[in-house]
Design a protein around this nucleic acid. Structure first.
Length: 487
RNA sequence: CGGGGCGUAGCGCAGCCCGGUAGCGCGCUUCGUUCGGGACGAAGAGGCCGGAGGUUCAAAUCCUCUCGCCCCGACCA
């Protein structure tokens, strides 16, 4: 009887098998790993310290990369006058349905409603117009770390919330070519961040007409494959051409004496990235964090029976902490839970390495290292730990990327015909690569019938151009595109 | 906005059909024994049963109206 009860409780407590119900697995994991919690206001989320620490690491690595390219941080206001929003026709059309408006202030109806920013292109445009007089004022390279609000109809923690944190970069340039170059440069920053720091392999490419940013000339993105085969847009970079410069009158006098319009760009990555990390690397035991972004890269679990043992073990741990300080982000779980409980807890939280220190280890002057990704155990002498642990973290970082890359490759299929395309979508989970004629009407029909959309038109195209016909329209293909269901 | 589920202790739920002093598990507190893969015993603390109206001697339970949340679709970083 007692045993039966125990088994039941254990099952209750375990996360849903993630193959069975990926969505439920995801929700439970976010809550149980204490990354985030639901907020009192529908669609909003509370990011808890453990989740926020991941975001801080993301910020740190991205910010370094931005600054290397000459970008500086600034802050722009949360509230944007309605008239600003309406200046760029496509922009307001695209965003109108999801803007939240402030209509009252100080107990009085406002003369002009204020939008809570869904993105800052318009208010940026207003300032850039003031700041730019001469070609000597260009380029302007600014990034904002802020929050934005979009009244989403259906929300999911980290992936799509009404309010989310992100960075939005906004640049202004002398020529269209320079803007294009910057757009691609930032896309490459995103790729390198995703692949090197988040260990998420991505496909770089261009968005289709229907998927591009409202008001952009061209939108580029990095697309990642989640554990259930769906696509996640992990970052976007937009070449806005002269569109916003026209609407906001961002002009300068060039060295040939001509007044010219600036070309602008914008680019963003959000807390959605955290959702991506969860869905790419997580397993049935919980989260697996890439060492570079993990709040704790290793957790020390002390093991002891008697008080004397405890003293010895804790002393040994204090020495380890001292030795590893500044080299590895470390935490010690000295709570009075049992070791088994701690193992499970920290596996749930995705800490890359567990360090076990017990009486036997103290006696041997060694520790046990356990990898979160593979579960592999190794015994390491205390003296070797200082060099071995950082190396192990590097191995895990690479291993996570390699595993994810293999999964991406293995689950990217090719289809020649629409029949084949539908068959793949029914029987497999993943991306389908096809020859494509970039026909927007056809894209809409395909979406209605299969829920799959053009995620990206990869930069990586066949040499010498695409030969053959579109898998759907039969017209001559203009590119190869990747279709998938998406978040 | 459509379809489906659900609001009872911090969390997960039972009780509701058939009205009669609010229960279980986890967690929490204290003490003791434990501790190398989710320990055990004992003693405790904790609830306007989402809200408002009704019916009734009596409502978590029946009726009406509301509010909120989650999931699935249309919209999206």
């Amino acid at each position: 009887m007692a045993d039966e009860q125990k088994i039941e409780d254990k099952e209750l407590d375990e996360i849903v098998e993630h193959e069975d119900d990926f969505s439920e697995w995801y929700n439970e994991l976010v809550l149980k790993a204490q990354l985030a919690d639901y907020a009192p206001v529908r669609g909003c989320m509370i990011i808890r310290p453990y989740g926020y620490a991941i975001w801080e690491n993301i910020q740190k690595y991205m910010d370094e990369r931005f600054k290397e390219t000459g970008v500086l941080n600034a802050y722009f206001p949360l509230l944007i006058p309605r008239s600003f929003m309406e200046r760029e026709a496509e922009h307001i059309e695209g965003f109108a349905p999801e803007v939240a408006w402030v209509t009252q202030g100080g107990g009085k109806e406002l003369e002009e409603p204020l939008a809570i920013r869904p993105t800052s292109e318009t208010i940026i445009g207003h300032s850039y117009a003031k700041w730019v007089q001469s070609y000597r004022d260009l380029p302007i390279l600014i990034n904002l770390w802020n929050n934005v609000m979009r009244w989403e109809k259906r929300t999911k923690l980290f992936l799509r919330t009404s309010e989310f944190l992100w960075q939005e970069g906004h640049t202004a340039h002398r020529t269209l070519e320079e803007a294009e170059e910057r757009t691609l440069q930032m896309l490459e920053v995103y790729r390198s961040f995703a692949e090197e720091d988040a260990a998420i392999p991505v496909i770089k490419g261009r968005k289709s007409e229907s998927e591009k940013f409202a008001g952009a000339l061209r939108t580029y993105s990095i697309e990642a494959m989640m554990g259930d085969g769906k696509a996640l847009q992990a970052g976007t970079s937009h070449n806005l051409g002269n569109n916003f410069a026209k609407s906001f009158d961002i002009q300068f006098l060039d060295d040939d004496g001509q007044r010219k319009l600036c070309a602008t760009t914008s680019w963003g990555v959000s807390t959605r990235m955290i959702g991506g990390i969860i869905m790419v690397h997580g397993d049935k035991k919980g989260l697996i964090l890439p060492p570079r972004l993990a709040p704790f890269q290793a957790v020390i679990v002390p093991i002891y029976r008697k008080e004397e043992e405890k003293t010895l073990v804790m002393e040994a741990i204090a020495r380890l902490q001292k030795m590893l300080k500044g080299k590895v982000r470390l935490t010690v779980d000295s709570s009075d839970n049992t070791p088994g409980w701690k193992y499970n807890q920290w596996e749930m939280k995705g800490v890359p390495v567990r360090i076990e220190v017990g009486p036997r280890d103290v006696q041997n002057n060694s520790v046990v290292l356990v990898r979160r990704d593979s579960g592999t155990k190794e015994f390491v002498g205390v003296d070797a730990l200082e060099t071995r642990l950082p190396l192990l973290l590097e191995e895990i970082q690479k291993g996570l990327y390699t595993t994810a890359k293999k999964k991406l490759d293995d689950n990217t299929f090719h289809a020649e015909t629409y029949e084949e395309f539908k068959k793949i979508l029914n029987e497999n989970k993943g991306f389908v690569r096809v020859k494509w004629s970039e026909d927007s009407a056809a894209e809409k029909i395909i979406k209605d019938e299969t829920k799959a959309t053009v995620r990206v038109i990869p930069f990586d195209q066949p040499e010498g151009g695409v030969k053959g016909n579109c898998f759907y329209t039969g017209k001559p293909a203009t590119c190869e595109a990747i279709f998938a269901k998406s978040y």
